[in-house]
Write a protein that binds this DNA or RNA. Structure first.
Length: 889
RNA sequence: GCAGAAGUGGUGGAAUUGGUAGACACGCUGGACUUAAAAUCCAGUGGACAGUAAUGUCCGUGCGGGUUCAAGUCCCGCCUUCUGUACCA
């Protein structure tokens, strides 16, 4: 019998589906293991061979854990709300639900043919109302919570109301808006219900506020900071401008410190932790107030990480957008300042970033009073100070900060030196360790550390400042002006948001005529005719009925992409529960993801928000652990190996790779499917594919072949180097694809794909098959294995087990090859050797393992057969060559 | 600029703890089978030099130093590539 991958792979995929082989059981006595892939967005383009890399790795691990006796949860689903489907809807008028459904079908077919052991009975889709019901539910929980800094956790809003009722704001230590007012218990109790709601909104973990947002006119929506790359939208590369809008926000900043601390408790890659640490951006320093000379009551607050250098302040710089700028600018300087402010406003964010070197600014004519010396210091504006960070103002210490130094130099401002023994003639001195302060009154002679302590003490003593820890992390804007996302369970009464009672969820996305914003600039849901809430019937009703008494308008924004992906890992534990987001017994058993595999591009988006929601859910007692994923691995990218033909410049002559030396040529991408394993181009195929070269002259190598030159690039359609897993599965089979993807190299590294290499693993599978068959006959012996055969088996068990535990899947594939090569040489056909070998191989190449396992007479799937146990005694040698070394050789 | 990762044959990579560098594959070369090709199988394959040959000698893990009986691996200094991030006060 011949190895026929097409037949056996189909057969076993059907068997697994029919027998629900990979269904995770809620068998609470068994040890559990939860393996999860990052939520895929089902794009219209389908999968290329780079996408399944992580899925294959996680699948191997999941199957391995089943062999090891674990109850394995290995689910899959779709992050099915998102921009591309909506953009497509805008262009074609097709409902995004329809295209999403079609894309999911393609995705599912592609995933199925690779033989993954997913428990599809638990599939979730974020765009499914049964699922987003719980996304809306969590939103309501966030709305009904505040952050108690004294307890360092989120609490129900009721506990805050109690505090207000008994003591007012006295003793309340909460994460809240900046401009909250203080009041007594009596005040509170005399406030109108509306006023009380307005105040509470300033404390809730999700809240409405007028925020400066990143507005993308081309996409017609706001974008989160992590959705903007180099000042343009990540998707589409459209320009982004700042704009003030009323938006829902999430008070993630309340969790900044805990998000930072939690990183120490989880086994995630260091680069990923570093980028989260960076994004949170903790810095320790002090707030200092500077009075403005001649403007009674006006002060400039600055945050500084170097309060020890305060005696080196020789000017102040405000961001051009700073609110004080128009107030304090003198008549003399007005024209200059206004011109500068206007010029910076015009410069796009992108220009500002691209052009870091140019120093610009303007003097306001006003002066601030140095809080210690009482000296007058000039107040400047400059665009190197960002309005969005800190207070939008800095105390400039040119001798200790390079940007201040450059600014001072450029405008001829004095640079007083406050560092003992430091040379500041060329550049600023910023070495904290070597700092000794001088020319600084009470700080003279102190080191950085001592001076910090002392100056903060003085600032607090004199009431002009205080020590502070600042975070770069901003509260996350949670509203999107989009159609294809979760609707908010919110209606408006007198302009104040009201939560719909959770028992009436889900609030389903309404039908609209058009998916674009309305003509008067409201979000797409503004096009819906039936989008109002009746508080008596608790139903969504026609807009015509809005009377602001029993029928109210519903929220027009929808939630952002990360809403649905921030708790999906918990929902998988109990995905069909319609009473609760998940049962307590289920979450207590499955607890958290044990192994999470996905790309590093989610470092500061999904992975930060999901950790935030998990901590919130933990605080409120819904989940038992405050980190959702114990271990995380970032799989590397699979790159394409592009093929080029070279055309002689200005002529219609195309040269083979060996003929281009010394010639002026232009490289042209050739489709990789037209190139064979020896880099030879199918010239006729190429001519058909690019008819403009039909009459071109092809200069071949001396042996008559035409060779392309190759280069490793990102896999993309435009580079014609995309390889489709469908083709690979058809020609070589899923087992070969799985083995080859692992064989390419270490999981976490990026590596180039070259289809020619797959013949190696394919012939390995054929050799494995041949161990069982002699000609057409199954030839298996029940005889005693020899010493050598046992040695081969046991060293393979040892190595493969170590490899899987270390996620070193590439090396176990070579180990299999060595084992099969050795057993072939030994002419081994012993059941006692081949059966355990099949179990070893089955996580990697499950179809062939199942097929051979059943031909050995087993009626049950191999998937839960115990993993073979390594025995040291088989590796002991009877004779051994000892290498002897002289001088290390 | 900052942070992280990586530099090993023609190519992907292996060497998990400092102990025979290049496992396993791809490709290439030669051979068998075939009218021929594909497929399959067998042998060889880091470089240089010497020898008819078996074989031997030397050089070799980005570069320059160092530690050690012994370094791809450890230490110091540089170079290059990739990835992330950036006027963050």
């Amino acid at each position: 019998m011949q190895y026929n991958h097409r037949e056996i792979e189909k057969k076993w995929q059907k068997y697994w589906a029919d027998h629900h082989t990979f269904r995770a059981k809620d068998d609470f006595d068994k040890p559990k293991y939860y393996v999860l892939d990052m939520f895929p967005y089902p794009s219209g383009a389908g999968l290329h061979v780079g996408h399944p890399l992580g899925y294959i790795a996680s699948d191997i691990y999941a199957r391995y854990k089943r062999h090891k006796g674990f109850n394995v949860l290995h689910p899959q689903g779709y992050d099915s709300f998102g921009l591309p489907a909506e953009q497509y809807a805008i262009q074609t008028g097709q409902h995004p639900a329809k295209t999403t459904e079609a894309n999911i079908k393609t995705y599912r077919r592609q995933l199925d043919q690779i033989g993954f052991s997913f428990d599809w009975s638990r599939e979730v889709r974020t765009s499914n109302p049964e699922y987003y019901k719980w996304t809306q539910w969590i939103f309501i929980q966030l709305f009904n919570s505040w952050y108690n800094k004294d307890m360092d956790k989120a609490e129900a809003i009721d506990t805050l109301i109690q505090k207000f009722e008994t003591n007012g704001t006295q003793g309340v230590n909460a994460a809240c808006d900046d401009e909250v007012i203080d009041f007594s218990a009596d005040d509170w109790n005399s406030f109108s219900a509306e006023k009380q709601q307005e105040i509470l909104l300033q404390y809730r973990l999700t809240f409405l506020s007028d925020t400066e947002v990143n507005w993308c006119p081309a996409l017609g929506t706001v974008l989160a900071n992590d959705e903007i790359v180099n000042g343009v939208s990540e998707r589409g590369g459209h320009p982004v401008v700042r704009k003030k809008m009323t938006q829902w926000s999430m008070r993630i900043s309340a969790y900044a410190q805990r998000l930072l601390d939690g990183l120490n408790t989880i086994d995630w890659p260091q680069p990923l932790k570093d980028s989260q640490t960076n994004w949170i951006g903790r810095s320790q320093g002090a707030m200092v107030s500077f009075q403005v000379d001649g403007h009674e009551g006006e002060k400039i607050d600055v945050f500084t990480t170097r309060p020890d250098t305060i005696f080196g302040v020789s000017f102040m710089t405000l961001a051009p957008e700073h609110e004080l700028v128009p107030k304090i600018t003198t008549a003399n300087q007005k024209a200059t300042v206004e011109a500068y402010v206007e010029a910076t406003a015009k410069r796009s964010e992108r220009d500002r970033m691209a052009d870091v070197k140019t120093i610009s600014g303007a003097f306001t004519g006003a002066y601030a009073i140095h809080p210690f010396t009482g000296d007058k210091v000039e107040i400047w504006i400059g665009d190197y100070v960002l309005a969005s960070y800190g207070t939008g103002a800095v105390m400039a210490v040119p001798c200790g900060d390079q940007r201040d130094y450059d600014f001072a130099n450029h405008f001829g401002i004095a640079i007083p030196n406050i560092f003992e023994g430091a040379d500041i003639s060329e550049e600023a001195f910023a070495d904290k360790e070597k700092t000794i302060i001088t020319n600084s009154d009470f700080l003279n002679g102190l080191s950085y550390k001592k001076a910090m302590k002392r100056v903060i003490y003085e600032l607090e003593e004199r009431g002009i400042g205080y020590g502070k820890i600042n975070y770069r992390l901003r509260d996350a804007v949670f509203s999107r002006q989009r159609y294809w996302g979760e609707p908010f369970p919110v209606y408006y009464k007198n302009g104040l948001p009201q939560m719909i009672n959770a028992v009436h969820l889900p609030i389903e996305l309404p039908e609209v005529e058009k998916y674009l914003p309305t003509e008067d600039g409201r979000p797409p849901l503004g096009n819906a005719d039936v989008w109002a809430w009746n508080v008596e019937t608790n139903k969504v009703v026609s807009n015509n009925l809005i009377d602001h008494k029993t029928v109210f308008p519903l929220e027009l924004n929808t939630m952002p992409g990360w809403a649905g992906s921030s708790q999906y890992f918990n929902r998988y534990m109990d995905p069909r529960n319609s009473e609760e987001i998940f049962g307590k017994d289920k979450i207590d058993y499955w607890k958290q993801v044990d192994l999470y595999i996905g790309g590093s591009e989610h470092a500061t988006g999904h992975l930060l928000y999901a950790r935030f929601w998990q901590k919130f859910m933990f605080d409120r007692g819904f989940v038992p652990v405050d980190e959702f994923a114990k271990k995380l691995i970032n799989q590397g990218m699979i790159l394409g190996t592009s093929a080029f033909v070279c055309r002689l410049e200005g002529e219609n002559t195309i040269l083979s790779a060996g003929k281009i030396e010394g010639q002026k040529v232009q490289p042209i991408h050739a489709d990789v499917s037209l190139v064979n394993a020896s880099d030879e181009l199918d010239i006729e195929g190429f001519k058909q594919w690019r008819p403009e070269f039909e009459n071109a002259e092809f200069i071949t190598e001396d042996d008559g072949t035409f060779k392309v030159s190759r280069e490793v690039e990102k896999m993309s359609k435009s580079k014609y180097n995309v390889v489709n897993p469908d083709d690979i599965c058809d020609e070589y089979g899923a087992d070969a694809l799985r083995l080859f993807e692992m064989f390419l190299g270490p999981l976490e590294q990026s590596k180039p794909w070259k289809t020619s290499g797959i013949s190696g693993v394919y012939s390995f599978l054929k050799k494995l098959w041949k161990l069982f068959y002699s000609g057409d006959e199954l030839a298996i012996s029940d005889g005693e294995p020899t010493k050598d055969e046992l040695k081969t088996l046991h060293k393979t068990i040892k190595k493969v087990e170590e490899d899987i535990e270390n996620f070193s899947f590439n090396t176990s594939v070579s180990t299999f090859m060595i084992a099969v090569n050795e057993l072939t040489a030994q002419k081994c056909n012993k059941r006692e050797i081949l059966e355990p070998l099949l179990v070893l191989i089955s996580p990697y190449a499950p179809h062939i393992a199942e097929e051979l396992w059943s031909t050995l007479g087993h009626n049950e799937s191999i998937s839960t057969v115990a993993f073979p146990v390594f025995e040291q005694k088989h590796l002991v040698e009877s004779t051994k060559n000892y290498p002897i070394s002289f001088n290390g050789k």
